[in-house]
Amino acid sequence: MPAPLPGRSEFNRITPSEITPEHLYLSRREFLAGGSALLASTFALSACTQPGSTPSPSATGFCDSAFASKTTDELGAKLTPCLDITNYNNYYEFSLEKEDVAPLARNLKTSPWEVAVGGLVNRPRTYGLEDLLRKFPSEERIYRMRCVEAWSMVIPWLGFPLAALLKEVEPASTAKYVRFETLHDPKQMPGQKAGVLNWPYVEGLRLDEAMHDLTILATGLYGKSLPPQDGAPIRLVVPWKYGFKSIKSIVKIDLVEEPPVSAWMEASPREYGFYANVNPDVTHPRWSQTSERRIGQLERMRTLPFNGYADQVAHLYAGMDLKKFF
């Protein structure tokens, strides 16, 4: 039985009408930019010739038209700069080096793209990405992203609640968990040629976690379609769990009866549990879980239980020993 869907949280809520679709504001920008286009491109050229400009060219282009409706999250923390979000990525399918991911992922073919939703559901279906975008309108969600490696970002995602998709395929009464799978294509994803993890990357959620309103399938960030290095064309975002739960470039979603074994649980079961809720009380042998470095600022900050979303999600784990179910 799926748990009842919790009431929509007040914070971060933006009605779809508040968000200008990408193509509209892009054309507005083009109009504004029209006269100064030549000047701008001259500047861009001179900027590129300067020795040692960090961002890869593709990411620079992406961030030129970055857009977010707010400048902070609901706790008042500033959004992480677009260039950091698109150039500092943990995506082992491409590289173990965070800054090598963007250039290596540049040519990932994200269209056409299909997501097969099946398993214990009454109406299994394979969706084309366009179907998903048409059926489930995107909304902006500004979420903190806390990596298990003790760094964090604040990211303005575009996406839709996973619950909307799950309701459409009608989970069977025997379905208790959701299993997600990333694309497996070593030709496009050179990191998959190395045996760092057992590919494809697999993640899982309990059904009530998956149905929670905070859980989204993201298809964009900073007002634009997701760039490949951030999990294009569609990825999971579960903001109260460590970043590795938010699986990227999803091709398969299955409803299942038993808890799925995630790629990281398989690689190191003592270090990575199924739940992986952000929890300062569960230590890790390598990284601090009591504090974190917010990318773009110098001081360390205390890590909040459930990454600051305790009010919305703590009830999901009532009565559970979260040190045991880490």
Binding site: G52, T54, Y88, K98, W151, R293, I295
Partner: peptide, 11 residues
């Protein structure tokens, strides 16, 4: 000085 120490310079 050139800001070339990645998004996480301390690391």
């Amino acid at each position: 000085t050139q800001g070339q120490l990645s998004a996480d310079p301390i690391r």
